[in-house]
Each structure stands twice: as C-alpha cells, then as structure tokens.
Amino acid sequence: MGIVPEMSVAENLILKKHHRPPFCRGFLLNLRAVRRFAHHAIEEYEIMTPGPDTPAKLLSGGNIQRLILARELSGEPALIIAAHPTYGLDVGATEQIRQILLEQRRRGAAILLISEDLEELMSLADRIAVIFEGEIMGEVAPETASLEEIGLMMAGEKRGVVL
C-alpha cells in the first residue's frame, strides 16, 4: 500500500480520497484543490520535496514515509495501526514521525503501534502488550514496567494481566 512511484507528490497525497470532493467533481479532478492540499500537507508533515509536482519515487525513504503518513492521517482516522513506522529511518525522521503519532494521540485517535524497538515503545506507548509465538504474554504500563520484565515476556514467560 506504499506509493505510486511515477506519480507526483500531490497526486500521491490524494490517493483514496481522489474520488471525493473537494478533489473530484463529477469526473474532473479539481487540480487547484489538489495543489492546495499538497502545499498544506508538505508544510505540516515537513515533507522535503522540490515541489508538489515531483515524482514521488524521487523522495528519500524518510520523506516517502512522511508522505504516506500525511496521506493516511489527513482523514483524521479513529484507529491507526502503525507497523514499524520508523524502521530504517534516520534520527531526525524517526523523531518527527514519533511526534506525529503523539499528535494523533492527543487528537483522540486509538493507535496500535507494532514495533521491536523497546526504547520507542517505552517512550510512546500507554500500554504495552508482548506477543510471543502468536500469544500475548502479558500487558504492562511503561511507567511501571522494567525492561527486564518485558524482556522475560519476550522470551516466552507469562506475566502481568493477560488479556
């Protein structure tokens, strides 16, 4: 569900919304609305691109990730499932994406964050559930739990409240 590489940043940003107003009226695309939305999203999500008309494939990995986030989050979803959202990104991009997730949480979205980065989980999550071989080993709150405890559960030991 990534991007459409040959199409422009602006066109990628409206994917899935392309058939609804304000982007589409009848069978015509409203290019002005598409552009306006693109400028807005590029600014808000700090997508580094020469412009909204640049093909999406020319962006760097972090910026493609931001583009996808902008595309997905602009609809104010009630539930966000983020699987390894910062995997392979540099420090700056990682930090920015974490901020975006926190921002969405403040807005009231439920976020299911799937990650193997313990430091990330401890700093972002309200609750952490550990899965081992497809089974939930236990659920803890990051403020009270120790890394050791989580580590044991990751190794297959049942702890805490099991859902």
């Binding site: 991007i3 199409m7 994917l15 899935k16 589409c24 015509l28």
Partner: peptide, 23 residues
Amino acid sequence: SRTRLGYEIRVVGDSPDAAHYAG
C-alpha cells in the same frame, strides 16, 4: 491528467498494489 478516470488509469498502471489499496 485532469480526470478521475485518468488518475485511476495511471495508478493501476504504475502500482497495482496501491490501486488495490485505494479501492
């Protein structure tokens, strides 16, 4: 370049996965 159909044609041609995802 200017219509919904054209947009969808280009998405289908360039990335069938994305097209599928976008319904």
